[in-house]
Design a protein around this nucleic acid. Structure first.
Lengths: 117, 117
DNA sequence: TCGACTCATCAAGATTCATTGATGGAAAGA
DNA sequence: TCTTTCCATCAATGAATCTTGATGAGTCGA
């Protein structure tokens, strides 16, 4: 038994659907995926990301806010700089959702196996 | 070692980003999430879904096409009916992506553990 | 205090997306 | 053949989203 199957995800609870939709929407944009990609090896400030992604500051600020509002990212201020980083709790919630869906697929295929194995 | 960590997902390959963005976009809409939810226990035809979700047929057709174009769903015709069902291959690719992201989070937190455990 | 730097926010414009109702094709029974 | 059922597609409308450039708040060093 893995954590991914420890809660009943499907069928979805009505209250859960909007939250999940926001996670997926936050990750549905290429710029935001590239932000997440850059943060996958550690936190970055906005000016780091403008350099790494060659994108305007206001544009990144918009996307960072979108990711933060969805819970995917968190931020912390250090002097002039604001550092953004992945929010492990929400990333794990998202992972559990997707792993549960995989488990459903496997069950439908009459395979007896658990997530990520 | 799990399958989720068997390939290097991060940093993302440029060619991979648009494909991933389409997965997430397909799942970023509440109606489409509810469709996936209903299909999590097996294939359904469009008229089943119009009843289950109380949605107009053209509306569902639009969303089913979006999910199918992203690879999340596949369909098969049986007489008059078209049955839609989850595409296990893409669901597993998506699972690997988010499991890899979780693994990155865990590594950043100096924890030595693998996906979904 | 002044200027430089980092970043969030705003308004405007363009693009994309979701919904609706109408139309037509394909399949199957009468 | 005619009709019904199931479904995809289209056009039109409105809503949501993304980008850009400008503005301003907060921080820090000179």
């Amino acid at each position: 038994m893995t954590s991914a199957t420890s809660k009943a995800v499907f069928p979805l609870h009505d209250d859960f659907v909007p939250r999940v939709a926001r996670w997926f929407h936050a990750l549905s944009d290429e710029t935001r995926l590239r932000i997440v990609d850059r943060l996958s090896d550690g936190e970055k400030c906005v000016c780091d990301l403008t350099d790494l992604l060659d994108a305007a500051q206001s544009r990144l600020s918009f996307h960072l806010k979108t990711l933060k509002d969805a819970g995917i990212l968190k931020d912390r201020r250090d002097g002039r700089w604001v550092y953004y980083y992945l929010n492990p709790a929400v990333v794990e919630d998202l992972t559990q959702f997707v792993c549960s869906l995989t488990a459903c697929c496997q069950k439908l295929n009459k395979e007896v196996s658990s997530c990520c194995e």
